[in-house]
């Protein structure tokens, strides 16, 4: 056994308050804030930050993170490219054998008026592509942070569990709007470039001016965003159940596919009004005159119900959860 002197023990009286070995020149008398100590640069005293500003700041950070993530940008890119491909394909095959054996009504009209490409692209992508993109972002929202461990630091900051969850969902809604808008804008541009533009002949037979048509596209964008936001709530709830974001994403996609399958089974028609997927493409009403709002209103109710139920589940789970990742 060797002779260990160690530092001479601090006198017991001081031991509760003092630290061994510190430079007396920096004693407690000259206590500095953590900020001022390093470089002597002064930091203005912290000012009280209002709660709404703090919310907005976290939301800004969240949205910034979402739209800087290469994966999310890639998904938005793909969503933008698909209407271009549809437009080009229709343009190439329009002259040849295009007498549409069972093609959807909207598709037939694209070659006559480019605006219809927007409706067609949205009703096509809303079946699977858009839901998958939303599932990725929303399914990753909590589980992804838990998986890389940043969740514990956000909560220790302290972000507040309810505040963080609310900001996460708000960001999911923003992403839904961005994704749907990306599809709509891309389709609108390609439609105008490749096909004739002008007053639109509606499904009900009447004709509306071109700008009126663009306005109706805006209504459809908001409607589809609401449908995607409802799915986002489902994915968010699943995201609070796991630390593996792929799990939350995959189960959301499975739920979407299962719902699409159920839709296709005639014997299960009683279920159909309760399925989220049943209402996603229910925006035909805007192409009638007057606008048939009945179906869309019912769709919005279903979306709101899904969002309320699944956000509540997410909240109940997330606020009571042990963060062990």
């Amino acid at each position: 056994m060797s002779t260990v002197s160690g530092k001479e023990a601090v006198s017991t009286e001081k031991a509760t308050r003092a630290v061994p070995d510190h430079d007396p020149a920096r004693g407690r008398d000259q206590a500095m804030t953590a900020g001022q100590a390093a470089g002597g640069r002064p930091i203005p005293p912290p000012r009280a930050v209002s709660a709404p500003r703090a919310w907005l700041r976290l939301l800004g950070s969240e949205v910034g993170l979402t739209f800087r993530r290469p994966r999310n940008l890639a998904m938005l890119g793909v969503l933008t490219v698909i209407p271009v491909l549809i437009g080009i394909a229709l343009r190439m095959f329009a002259g040849t054998g295009g007498d549409g054996t069972g093609a959807p009504m909207i598709f037939e009209r694209i070659t006559g008026n480019g605006l219809f490409l927007t409706f067609a692209a949205l009703s096509l992508l809303v079946q699977l592509m858009l839901p998958v993109c939303v599932a990725v972002v929303a399914g990753d929202s909590i589980a992804g942070e838990a998986g890389i461990g940043t969740l514990r630091y956000l909560l220790a900051a302290p972000a507040g569990r309810t505040r963080l969850l609310a900001v996460k969902y708000a960001c999911v809604v923003v992403f839904c709007l961005a994704a749907v808008t990306a599809v709509a804008l891309s389709a609108l541009l390609v439609g105008l470039l490749l096909f004739p533009a002008g007053p639109i002949t509606l499904l009900s037979g009447g004709t509306i001016p071109f700008l009126d048509g663009v306005l109706r596209i805006g209504v459809v964008v908001l409607y589809v965003t609401a449908g995607m936001a409802a799915l986002g709530a489902v994915a968010l709830a699943l995201s609070t159940l796991t630390e593996v974001s792929v799990g939350a994403i995959a189960s959301t996609v499975v739920i979407v596919i299962a719902a699409q399958v159920l839709r296709a089974v005639p014997q299960l028609s009683v279920l159909q009004p309760y399925l989220l997927t049943e209402w996603w493409s229910g925006f035909d009403g805007v192409l009638r005159d007057p606008v048939a709002i009945g179906d869309m209103g019912q769709g919005l109710l279903v979306f709101a119900a899904y969002a309320a139920v699944f956000c509540s589940i997410a909240w109940a789970r997330f606020t009571g959860k042990d963060i062990t990742a």
């Binding site: 950070s61 890389i148 940043t150």
Partner: peptide, 30 residues
Amino acid sequence: VEGPAFYPYLSGEANLRRYDAADPSADPRT
């Protein structure tokens, strides 16, 4: 707590900014 955890695709500075944004009493001007 239990080692560092940050966003791999962000810079060190952007990572700190992110955690600072999570603190409701942090002053954004400073």
